[in-house]
Nucleic acid binder design. Sequence first.
DNA 1: CTGTTAGCGCCTTCAA
DNA 2: TTGAAGGCGCTAACAG
Lengths: 338, 338
Amino acid sequence: MKHVTIKDIARLAGVSVTTVSRALNDAPEINPETKERVLDICRQEGYRTNLLARSLISSRTHVIGVILPDIAEPFYAALALHIETCARQFGYQVMLCGIRSEDGDLNALFDFLISQRVDGILLTGAVPGTRELLRRYQAAVPIVLLANCMSMDTAWECSSVCIDNYAGSRLAAQYLHGLGHQDVVYLGLRRDSFAHLLRHKGFVDTAGELGMQVSTVENPTGRSSIVAGLQLARELFLAPFRQTAIFAASDLLALGVLQAADELGVSIPEQVSLIGFDNIDYAALPKIRLTTISRRPEAVARSGVQVLMELINSEDRGEYTRKLLAPALVERQTCRRL
Amino acid sequence: MKHVTIKDIARLAGVSVTTVSRALNDAPEINPETKERVLDICRQEGYRTNLLARSLISSRTHVIGVILPDIAEPFYAALALHIETCARQFGYQVMLCGIRSEDGDLNALFDFLISQRVDGILLTGAVPGTRELLRRYQAAVPIVLLANCMSMDTAWECSSVCIDNYAGSRLAAQYLHGLGHQDVVYLGLRRDSFAHLLRHKGFVDTAGELGMQVSTVENPTGRSSIVAGLQLARELFLAPFRQTAIFAASDLLALGVLQAADELGVSIPEQVSLIGFDNIDYAALPKIRLTTISRRPEAVARSGVQVLMELINSEDRGEYTRKLLAPALVERQTCRRL
DNA sequence: CTGTTAGCGCCTTCAA
DNA sequence: TTGAAGGCGCTAACAG
């Protein structure tokens, strides 16, 4: 592919490359007529600025790198979509990078992005080894952590944006209490995840304040999947069961609960109310209609991009912004008033 | 952000930049010891090649642009994921660009990508104005159309990879016939979409050959959404209804059909069998379990990347590769044997 | 208003 | 085996 350069245009227009450059960047010191003539030739010849060359000088690429754990997961897909939309409003392009758990060589990915001279990086999800990554790369490129609640620990020297997991569960507890539920189960506690620990604490604390009984079912599988939810719920439903509501630690678990209920003839919400956490797209489906807590991907994305932009445009590093966003209750049809 | 350059390293190592360059690109003409010493200093100083500079010379960025209509649509999310995985195997990074229908200025997007000097572009989905785009940009950058069946028309001078929509419906018809269905409905024909026209033709042709009756319900809404499916199916179920199976032109329509059936007490598959088209993630959900035709995003992605790589590495343009991939039947629980 | 010169960071001749 | 010089396409001084 042969590309037309500023030099070609200069030759064709009979002017110097500087003049062409000025025309292109509408600089003030240029004769309007010359400018028009030059621009005409540019259009005619299909000239397109070589951004590589420009970035080489300005050391600004107007590209940010976005690292997602898995774009096929609906929450991250939504996040990606909104990041892109928002970044574009700032004149930025997104370079999207997925990491699969197997070959997850994040170091290589960071090296690549920095070599590519991206202006900043959005690292989403709670990736193992994040701290190490920050220590190694934060000096070389602005980084903002997204949807990673560990980063809210004051010991983490970094900027981050995350939904408030604690407040989310609080919301769920208050909602169930408002519907008259007194005896509920928290299904799917994962001790390996900081986010889940927070969710659990928020729920238990609030339920306690409101005088509700809560029994916790742990999820030992280490994954919040539909099958995990299915298994946990089966055990729950097969034993004598007095609780009136279930708070599932994630929507996928909740879907598993729905399936178990189906199998065992437990009707939701008539016999048991169910509320999830995440508000993944599936939750809105006709046959699902799951009441849940939204992690508000759009708000997280917008805020994350903003924080990153500020970081990019600020001179002094070493000052970090942290945002904890309020989650939102999405009421659908899996909870009923007692 | 101050970056270490090859020059800094040269100074620190007491050699010339050329030598450093040779060490970095493991060129043969260099003393192994010098090389080690230089590389040590590079590591120590956190040197990272400036790919902008390198690309400026090589005029290869090892980046491809991928344009998606909507990353939040499960099919395209899956496509993106696999494109990225596959491109990486070729040593390529992906620059992902979503286009929202509103501001869909594809010309600007193409200009940007070309300015960014991406080595090639994957344009996915059936975007209006594709022909015009090809005419304008194909000379400047290798382009491959993905999941756009219009491009299979021989009048289109371009490379493309697409699932065989005709064969997909054929599969559906044969499957229903095999189960003993003789009288079926094709639900959701959209005359504005070439893909849908093909799906319809494939179904009707095959049904005819097999001696089945097929009645077609058109979808006038112009969108294959859940609500569209819901409305069409309501009308269908409320009138006297003798058919034993429904082929929905897309999975979203099928989800609408499921909801209508639920509402009106029609049980699937006991009273009516249902088969969709797409195999979106939702289709596999516990409470859905929709039998459908897969568009095989992984295969489409892999093939598309391959074709693009060949195009990038070949000298002569003007020769186009087209691939029509075979779809696959995904049997779940919404069809029954008569 | 316009052109000349220099340089961004790197690679590639060509000489030493 | 090493280095010096030139240039990729562009912008930014500084003269004219």
